[in-house]
Computed example of a mutant assay.
Amino acid sequence: MTLNHVRRGKGSPLLLVHGLGAGWRSWEPILNDLAASREVIAVDLPGFGESPPLDGEVSIATLADAVAGFIKELGLDGIATAGQSMGGRIVLELARRGVGGDTVALDPGGFWSDRELAIFSATLRPSIALVSAVRGALPALLSNPVSRTALLAQLSARPWALSAQTVLPDVTGLADAPATGAAMDALTKGPKQQGAPAGTVPGLVTIGWGRRDLVTVPRQARRACTAFPDAELYWFDRCGHFPQWDAPQEAIRLILDRTT
């Protein structure tokens, strides 16, 4: 299927894959800076942003199928990829399949224990329900540092320091995207992420993790690196689940340094 996307910049192509939320706009805090050095292609996954939902089952496998099909459709074989959260898991799944080139996965899902997965589901689902219930008031709530901190404490290490412009697309996307519920089911009820034996992934694989991530907690990083033994682990200090929010310049440097 054709996925809605934006293309900016010139140079070696780089594909950005978002997590739950705003679609390609999740990358806006760092998109233009990346595009100063590369041709950046940022997609809306099916059912997010302006891409239509999948006709059938929504799973990590079918979402990865859609991205793989997009890569083939645009003739982007070997393209470097970067993803965050669910998007980080999708780019690792593509690397596991041998699709794409260098890979940067930021705080990917799929490496939780059963207990961690239960906590993830029990805490994030009510948060999504809450932002849906107060959808009309979100611009005002996110403009206030106190209410912004209350709403985003699970997602950011320093929500009071963020701008409403930075976070509003992702938060409203959680409420608006037709695929949010199905994607949450895929994450919480589907299989955990499979790994790739050493020497089987294309290009370099880098896994970045926020030391203060309360969604995919930091101890999951070691499991991710065990599953992908060729990967290099990078820690973002003082960073929560969204490096593009909490550490944008550091995220830009990591993505540019670790992909060609």
Rank of each mutant, 00 (worst) to 15 (best):
P29H: 12
R148C: 12
R7L: 06
G199H: 01
L204E: 14
L204I: 07
A140I: 13
R148E: 11
G173C: 04
P108Q: 12
I207A: 00
D77Q: 12
T103M: 12
T166I: 15
R89H: 11
T166A: 11
A80W: 13
A175Y: 12
I71T: 05
I119R: 13
I128A: 04
I60H: 02
T2A: 11
T123M: 11
G11W: 02
G100H: 12
A82M: 05
L45T: 06
L214K: 13
W24D: 01
F70T: 09
E57W: 01
L162H: 05
Q194R: 14
M86N: 02
R212H: 08
A231Y: 01
Q84S: 15
L155E: 01
R115C: 00
E57R: 15
G100K: 05
A183Q: 00
R148L: 11
P218R: 11
F236M: 14
V99F: 03
F228M: 01
R253C: 08
L214V: 04
A137S: 10
W112I: 07
M184G: 05
D257W: 03
A42C: 13
D213K: 09
P243N: 14
Y234K: 14
S121Y: 04
T226R: 11
P52I: 02
R258C: 13
V58P: 06
L151F: 13
T188V: 08
V58M: 08
W112V: 07
S59F: 08
R89A: 12
G88I: 00
A129R: 15
P145W: 04
A35P: 03
A22E: 06
L117P: 02
Q194W: 02
P29W: 12
A186P: 10
A122L: 00
R148Q: 04
I30D: 07
T81H: 06
P145K: 01
L151H: 11
L256W: 14
R97N: 00
F48Y: 13
L20K: 08
Q194L: 10
L141R: 03
V205L: 09
G23L: 03
G9A: 05
A247N: 14
W27Q: 09
H5W: 10
Q220S: 02
G199L: 02
D230R: 04
G181V: 01
G203V: 06
V167L: 07
T81N: 02
A95Y: 04
D114M: 11
I255H: 15
L233M: 14
S113K: 10
